[in-house]
Amino acid sequence: MINEIFYMNGYGAYVWSSFIFTLSGFFILYSVIKLQLVKEQKKFDEKFKNLSSEKVELVKKQKTYRELLPNTSISKI
């Protein structure tokens, strides 16, 4: 059974390479996008922490930031 799945009547190399290429593509794209997201979130956290208390209050009042803040680590502080 296991041999059959790997050999696939002589087409195993073609079938497995197609599936491995697809799944590798998924993994690479997911990792790259995740990395970009984490990098931007860190940048936002860093900038937010360095803001003066007046600016923090100003940011918290703005609607667009109120939507964003729950999604960043700032909300966990």
Partner: peptide
């Protein structure tokens, strides 16, 4: 998978815009 990547990328783009906004404060 497309939906997942789209949501992550969209979120990244939004945070990029907000980051620029913080610079302008």
């Amino acid at each position: 998978f497309s939906l997942l990547i789209f949501l992550m990328k969209y979120n990244t783009e939004l945070i990029k815009i907000k980051n620029k906004g913080l610079d302008r404060l």
